[in-house]
Amino acid sequence: MDILIAILSRVAKAAVTLLAIAVLNFFLLHAAPGDPAVVLAGEAGAADEQMIAQLRERFGLDQPFYLQLGKYVWGIVQFDLGYSFRQGMPVSQLIAERLPATLLLTMTAFFISLGLGIWLGVAASARVGKASDSLLTTLALLFYATPLYWAALMAVLVFSVWLGWLPAFGFETVGADYTGMARILDIGRHLVLPAMTLGLFFMAVYMRMTRASMLEVSQLDFVKTAKAKGLGGAAIRRRHILRNAILPVVTLAGLQAGQLVGGAVLTETVFAWPGIGRLMFESLAARDYNTILGVFIVSAAMVILFNVITDIVYRIVDPRIGARA
């Protein structure tokens, strides 16, 4: 019962945050350069006074500010994110078409970075002070300083242009019309470079965190007990230390989900990956503010949803969290 109340209150808090972001979005939209009615009339090719006035009335721009705000937020609640005049379709439809590609990319990158990061962090912590630990730590420091989009470009240069192993851009081979398994493999081949480069930076973050956390936990008394029981080093690391050390890493990973979405804008731009990040980049060049802000609010919603899920999973996995909150 307690857990149900906790989950409900968490969801309610998330909803309030999302509403606040919608309000912020409204103000940003109004701060965007150009009177929307004038811009719309310009797009339609007839910017005379009468048309502008008509447009104002039609889109409610002549109404008082608070009514406009209310209408906007109510629209967002119903997934109405406005209309993209550049692309000639509703923003919500544009985003819905592109969202699956972004989800595929970010989720793959998330699991690659978390899995590899934890694995390498454990490996480094087991070899503290040895050459292999120094090598891993130095590499992590280097990845941590590397701009994501640059790593992506260099990966294209090496693995596509020079070696010719993997496709340089796109979601699948255009015109190949693969079906079934062949199509999945084709998409998979296109996914390797974007997912690896997006995951690389985060892998470095999780590796450093895992290593530090492992070393911290290994100083605790229960580890001595395990040693006294005669358990081997590997068993202690896996079953006793890692289980405790992994919690802060997963917490951090949940918090970093937002960065992953931001990183997707850069990765999708380099690899021409047809997701919402690429959509945002295209809209930047066209100064299509409705779409830019639509992508912004959808990515914020994704992050909030992700945080709620991590939170709930936690409460179930680790009962101590419920007691503290």
Partner: peptide, 20 residues
């Protein structure tokens, strides 16, 4: 917390795009 929830790179893009 509100500001921490918003994906920060996306917000930076939006701010710079809107304020030129």
């Amino acid at each position: 917390e509100f500001f921490q929830t918003i994906p920060n790179f996306a917000l930076a893009i939006v701010l710079v795009a809107i304020f030129q």
